[in-house]
């Protein structure tokens, strides 16, 4: 049973130099209780396709799709009001640039309590208690103290964990995590991934994980989708992908791991792909 089903998604941006296609006919399907990893090179449309599903792209974007449904409901035809009932509650997203996504003028505690009160309908008191619990869950040190801190008073990794706490606060049925652990060292990354996987297994939520870290893919995903220049290159269950990657780009991704450096040069994808450069 798919919870999110997107078919033939195209996103075009109007720019000063004409129209630019960021996503070019991509399908994304994730089932209930499934972990889908999306990997792919920088600029290949991973974030834009998910922002399109959330309805969060700027006006310069034109979004078309043959289908875009959440639990059978048509997201494209939905009134903005109905869509708001789903986005931020049933579908939540951990944004790629956590520090930039937090409001610098409010404390972290205030921001997460707002989410709990407006999106989960909690009373002020319950929200406060739940916020503290969530901060502990994501492993923020001195959680009471940090609830009262402003974003600039926290480290990059601490801000990222505040964003993660906000995204899981409402008990979503689909969580889209865009590079959720890039600012975290591996020990905390492990703690966060364990937490997300535990939540996933307990609540049956679906998880879309955008990452460039093949180690993270290996340790979390059920299925993997590989994107390159706005197109889907390969889709496979996680085991097949690592055992026998089909597409040259996927093979390149796996061999670009720094531990595979030859001499003092690192292999790049272009040393594997013989394809004309497409304009950014």
């Amino acid at each position: 049973m798919s919870i999110l089903n997107i078919r033939n998604l195209t996103v075009r941006f109007a720019t000063s130099t004409g129209s630019f296609t960021a996503v070019d006919g991509i399908d994304v399907r994730v089932d209930k209780g499934e972990v889908l990893a999306i990997v792919g090179e920088s600029g290949s449309g991973k974030s834009v396709s998910m922002l399109a599903a959330m309805g969060l792209l700027p006006d310069t974007a034109t979004v078309t799709a043959d289908e875009m449904t959440f639990d059978g409901q048509n997201l494209l035809a939905m009134s903005p009001r109905d869509r708001r009932r789903i986005i931020g509650r049933e579908i939540t997203m951990i944004f790629q640039e956590p520090i930039a996504s937090l409001n610098p003028s409010f404390t972290a505690g205030y921001q997460i309590e707002e989410v709990l009160r407006y999106n989960a309908g909690m009373s002020k008191r319950d929200a406060r208690a739940r916020a503290l619990e969530l901060f502990k869950q994501v492993g923020i040190p001195e959680p009471e103290e940090k609830l009262k801190s402003y974003p600039h008073q926290m480290s990059g990794g601490q801000c990222q964990r505040v964003m993660i706490a906000m995204a899981i606060a409402t008990g979503p049925r689909l969580l889209i995590a865009d590079e959720p652990t890039t600012a975290l060292d591996v020990t905390i990354q492990k703690q966060i991934l364990d937490l997300l996987m535990k939540l996933q297994e307990q609540t049956g939520m679906a998880l879309i994980l955008i990452t460039h870290d093949m180690g993270v893919v290996a340790e979390t995903a059920d299925r993997v989708q590989v994107q390159y220049k706005g197109k889907k290159m390969e889709e496979a269950d996680v085991l097949s992908l690592f055992e026998a990657p089909k597409h040259p780009y996927t093979r390149a991704l796996l061999s670009a791991l720094p531990e595979n450096a030859t001499g003092d040069r690192l292999p790049t994808v272009s040393s594997f792909m013989v394809e004309p450069e497409v304009k950014v």
């Binding site: 090179e41 920088s42 460039h212 991704l253 670009a256 690192l266």
Partner: peptide
């Protein structure tokens, strides 16, 4: 940290 492996390799090179 925000770069995929290929671009990461390009930047490190």
């Amino acid at each position: 940290s925000a770069l995929d492996l290929s671009v990461q390799a390009q930047v490190l090179n």
